[in-house]
Every structure is written in structure tokens, then in C-alpha cells.
Amino acid sequence: MRYEAPTTTEGAVALLAAANGTAKVLAGGTDLIVQMRSGRLAPDLVVDLKRIPALTSIAAENGGYRVGAAKACMELVEHEAFVRDCPGITDAVKLIGSIQVKGRASMGGNLCNASPAADSTPALIAARVTARVVGPNGSRDVPVQEIAIGPGKTSLGKGEILESFLLPKRAARSGDAYLRFTPRTEMDIAVVSAAVNLTLDEGGVCRDACVSLGAVAERALVVPEAAAALIGTKVDEVALKALAAAASAACRPIDDKRGTKAYRTKVAGVLARRAAEIALNRAKGTN
């Protein structure tokens, strides 16, 4: 195996584009090294992205934030402004493994590992985050939900890397939240998860919403029917029930070692409802 640590995105792209055999990028390494150790993966080239400033920085942009795809989760959860402005994404980032794992793991790695159970993905989707992809033919901005397309599969082409995320400016009276279910309090992979992002008008009526579910399909789902259950309501009991029903109805999970179809389907609704309640409180500024 060859290990390279370029200091520019272009350098990384050039290495990947020129690679023969299996080339992998190293962000936090918390999935890559585990896969290599288990024998599932034996890359010929590993390109370490953590020495590239564009991938490891965070900066204000258009009232929101541009976050490097390889920025360590612990650096994000210690970033006071980010935590204040991006509560739903913070919820998710805080859940990506132990403190040790978060010391290395990143949102970009979490997304590009393309596990349907990735914690940050539903939160990024609900928050309508855009990913910047850089490749041999330049860069393109794509919605996050178009990156991970199936278990272990991304839409990135040869030589392309995910450079950064743009977290858009949050509208007034809006709030988001992410919840997952795991058997243990920590150190688990989501059995099922839900992210809700909503915006209220001055009268407290929900005018915009986005709901995303994790671990209930081959990729994180966007569930417009669930969002529709909230829009036009005061996110009251009736709306929350409809939200839960729509979330459960959208699930197409599998039975595996971490959960059953029936369990995931039911609890997706439970979590969507609970996440909506938290998001509502955040939108009202009462959390």
C-alpha cells in the first residue's frame, strides 16, 4: 500500500485520478482502517486528506458555514458558533462514535462511507446542505442526498473527492433536530434515525419542513409526505401523529443483526415525532 498526504485538493485529485488499482481517501480513517483490518478492503493507495486546509477548516459563508469534509467531529462540537447555529447537525455529529472516534471522524467520511445508518447524513439532508465535489474536471455543488446512493456506494466519479459542505443560513423561527435509536446510550450504530428541520411563521404555523430518515432503506431517505404532514400546521398532536405515520409508511428497511423491519418501521415514526417536537421547541426558542 502507498500512503500519500497531499496539501491541496488538486494534489489529492491528481493522485486519485492517476491511481491504478484500489485508491481510497483517508479522512478520519475510522471506517477505512477498520475495513482494512477486517480484510474487507486492501487499497493500493491511500490519500490522506487531513493535511489539506480546504478539507479541515470551517468558515462563515453567506450567513451559514462552509465546513471542510474531513474536519474532525470533535472540532465541530467544540465550535461554539457552529453548535449554536446548527443544532440538528450538532445532534448528529455528537453521536458519531466515542470521543476518540470523533477526534478523527468527519462528516465527509461519514457521508462517503455511505452507510445507510450514517448519523450525520439525515441531519445534513434535512438541513438542506450542499456538498462541494472536486474532481479532475473541476468542482460541482450537489445536494447531500445525491452523494450516498446505496450501502458503500457514492455518486463520486474516479478522482473526485468531497471537499466541503455548505450549511445554509438558518431562517428565522426555524429549528432542526436529529435523533437515533441505539440499544446502548453510546458506541452503537443507529438502528433507525430521524432528522427534522422546520420553519414557523410569526403565527407559529409551520411553513417549511424537511424530514429525513436513516437506516430504513439502502440510503438515507427524504420523506416529503412526512414534511407535508407538518406544513400548514402548528405541529400539534394531529400533525405529529400524521408525521409519525408518514415516516413509518416511507420505510423500506431490512432485517439484520441490529434490528427488524417491524421495529425500524415503527420506531422511525416515534423518532420523527420526537425529533419534530425538539425542532419545534428550537424554532420557538424554548429549548
Binding site: 446502548r184 446510550t185 453510546e186 458506541m187 452503537d188 450504530i189 443483526k257
Partner: peptide, 16 residues
């Protein structure tokens, strides 16, 4: 065996 590791063989962690 599908869970030969501490990730999916879930022994209690401190916060449990």
C-alpha cells in the same frame, strides 16, 4: 457469527 466485535456485541458502556 455476525457480531464478532465490541460494536455489535454490546457490553455495557459507562453511560449505560
Amino acid at each position: 457469527l455476525e457480531n464478532p466485535g465490541f460494536l455489535d456485541y454490546r457490553i455495557p458502556v459507562c453511560s449505560d
